[in-house]
């Protein structure tokens, strides 16, 4: 676990990703859609000479199904096994230092967020939900590598 987290905005909420989970922050400008792929797969793009699968994290975690999520824009690239994924986020705000351990959330945050958040992380930029990359990718844990 890194001392740093990347703060991003997904479905309007501030989410913190462990910096160790993040490959890079990229801008997606060209996406080829994949016919018949599940709705959270927005398409394929290329990062350098690697293929990137572009994911709508809010749809993948079952938070909201946004029909109009544009595949192009700011994204967080994460690596899972041999595959590279890009999580489309509304904003990638900043890298911030963790303050203390993540704490349980004292309210009902909704079914989707319960799957996707591992608690509340206090940061130098204020509190954020600590995001679970697996849940946002909609991949089974067993498959991870």
């Amino acid at each position: 676990m890194s001392d740093l987290v990347l703060l991003v905005r997904i479905a309007g909420r501030l989410v913190a990703f462990d910096a160790d989970d993040v490959h890079s922050v990229i801008d997606i400008d060209d996406v080829s859609p994949v016919p018949h792929a599940p709705p959270h797969v927005l398409g394929l793009s290329a990062l350098r000479s690697r293929t990137v699968t572009v994911i709508d994290p809010a749809a993948a975690a079952g938070i909201i199904q946004n029909e109009n999520c544009s595949p192009c824009g700011r994204a967080v690239a994460v690596e899972r096994g041999p595959h590279l994924y890009a999580l489309r986020v509304e904003e990638a705000e900043d890298v911030a230092a963790r303050i203390g351990e993540p704490i349980p959330i004292a309210a009902d945050i909704g079914a989707g967020w319960r799957r996707a958040a591992r608690g509340m992380q206090e940061t130098a930029q204020g509190p954020a939900l600590l995001g679970d990359v697996q849940a946002f990718l909609h991949v089974e844990n067993t498959h991870a590598d």
Partner: peptide, 11 residues
């Protein structure tokens, strides 16, 4: 190889 979610389409 392509991501498992896409592979699952079988296409």
């Amino acid at each position: 190889p392509v991501a498992p979610a896409i592979m699952a389409t079988g296409l």
